[in-house]
Amino acid sequence: MKAALLRAPNDVLFGDVADPTPERGDLVLKVRAATICGTDIRIVSGRKTMGVRYPSVLGHEFSGEIVDAGGSSRFRAGDAVCVDPAIACGHCAYCKRGLENVCENLTAIGYEVDGAFAEYIRIPGRALETGNVFAMPDGVSFEEAALAEPLACVINGQEKVGVERGDVVAILGSGPIGLLHVKVARLSGARRIIVSEPNPARREAALRAGADVVVDPVNEDLKAIVRDESGGIGADVVIVAIGVPSLANDALGLARLRGRVSLFAGFNKGEMAPLDVNAIHYNELIVTGSFGLTRLQFEKSLNLIASGQLDTKPFLTHRFALPAIGEALETAARGDAIKVAIVS
C-alpha cells in the first residue's frame, strides 16, 4: 500500500510500504479522512521526539471504512468508524482512578502503532475490546469524524479548568485548537470570549467561530482589553492554546484573583519559561495542564458533532490526496490553513 513514512526529522517519504498484517481480533480500515495535528508538525520537524519511532507512519485524527472486521461481533466490513487513538491499559493505578488519559501503559495510534497517513490502517484488537472504536453517526462525514479526537482533547482541557456559565474566557492562540476552545467555551455558557492572535486571518476565523473580541497582541494591549471586557478584574479562565512557553506567564497576568489558567498546548522538550510564582500564590490562581482525552470525552465530542451543536465543517479549509502529503504538511506548518485533511 501507499503511505507517508517518517524516516527521520524532516524526512517524510511517500511510497510503498507493507500492507497491514492483522492478528486475530484486529480491524483493518481503509482511511477515508485523516487530519493533520500540530503535534504531527512538531514530530516531523524534530521538535517532539518522545515516543516517536523511526520509521513510522503518523496520523492520529482519522476515520475510515472497515475492510477486515477480524471476526468482530460488533462490526463488519463496510462499516464507517472513527477511533479514539489513545488506548489505555485499564489496570494501572491511574486507570483504576478513572484517569485513563494519563495511563502508565498508554498505547497511542500514530505513535507506538502506525497511523493514518496511509491507504490502510491496522487497529489493534485491544482497541476494540476497550471500546475505542466508534460507529460513525448518521449524517457525519468522514472529515468531521476525524475531528472528534482534537475536539475531545479540548473538552478534556475545559473540564480540567472548569469553564462555567457567565465566565469571561481569554484564549491565547487561534489555530484549530484555539478555535475549538472558542466553540466549547460558548457551549459551556461563557459570557465573553476574548481571543489573542497575531495572524489577521485567524483573528477573523475566531470571530466566525463565536469569539466576542479579537486582539492583535503585537499592536494592542491585551491585558488592558481583557480587564476592560471583564469589568476591571481579569478573566475567569485563561487558556494557552499555542505552544509558546512565554505565554504561560502572560496568562497569569490576565486572570482575575482566584482565576483559572489552562496550559493546554504542548511545549517542545527543553523549552522553559519563568513563571511568576508570587502571582500564583498571592492571587490564589489555579493553574492546570491538560493531556489527551478519554473515551467518554471522545463519545461526547462525536455526539456534539452529530447533533449539530458544534459545527466542525468550517474548520476544514484545505484538502489533499495522500500523494500530496508533503504539500499538506507544509501547508499546515505555514499556518495558511485552519485544518488540513488528507482524504480519499
Rank of each mutant, 00 (worst) to 15 (best):
G98M: 04
F298E: 03
L316C: 04
L296I: 07
V161P: 01
P323N: 07
T294N: 09
L27H: 04
R227K: 15
R165M: 14
I66Y: 13
Q309M: 12
A224L: 08
D216N: 15
H181V: 06
E100I: 05
E100K: 06
A337L: 06
L322A: 07
D84L: 11
G231F: 13
V168D: 00
D40I: 11
E220L: 04
V195K: 02
R74K: 14
G175F: 10
R7K: 15
I194A: 01
F142H: 15
K313M: 07
L257W: 12
G259V: 09
E23D: 13
K339T: 05
A86C: 10
R202Y: 05
V44A: 10
G64S: 09
G25Q: 01
Y120L: 11
A201F: 13
R74Y: 08
A3W: 06
A328T: 09
S301R: 04
A321P: 03
G59Y: 03
R191E: 15
G326M: 03
A265K: 03
P150G: 08
T288C: 14
G266R: 01
I193K: 08
R256E: 04
E330Y: 00
G178E: 12
V168C: 09
V57L: 03
T21P: 00
L147G: 09
V215A: 02
G166L: 11
V57E: 05
P22I: 06
G98V: 01
N249P: 06
V161N: 01
G253T: 05
L29K: 10
V182E: 06
A3H: 03
G90E: 12
D311A: 09
C92Y: 07
A209P: 03
R295I: 12
E129A: 12
A341T: 02
V277L: 14
S188H: 03
V169F: 10
V238I: 08
A235C: 07
A80L: 11
A93G: 01
K300C: 11
G231Q: 06
G292E: 01
S141R: 00
A337R: 02
D68N: 14
A148R: 02
A118L: 04
I233Q: 07
A4W: 05
V12R: 04
G78S: 10
V238A: 01
V261T: 02
N283W: 13
L310N: 03
V182Y: 04
A206R: 07
D40G: 10
D212R: 00
N283K: 14
G98L: 03
I41V: 15
R203L: 09
A201W: 08
R208E: 11
G234P: 03
R42I: 00
I233P: 00
D336Q: 12
V195T: 08
G266A: 12
G234C: 06
E104S: 14
E23T: 12
L252D: 00
L5F: 03
S63D: 08
L252T: 05
R32N: 13
T288S: 13
V214L: 06
G15K: 12
T39N: 10
F267W: 14
V113D: 04
R191Q: 13
I123Q: 02
I177S: 05
I225W: 01
C92N: 08
N156C: 06
Q309E: 13
L302P: 10
L322V: 08
L263W: 06
G232K: 04
R208H: 08
A279M: 13
T39A: 09
A8T: 05
A93P: 00
T21E: 15
R42M: 10
S196T: 13
E327S: 13
V214R: 04
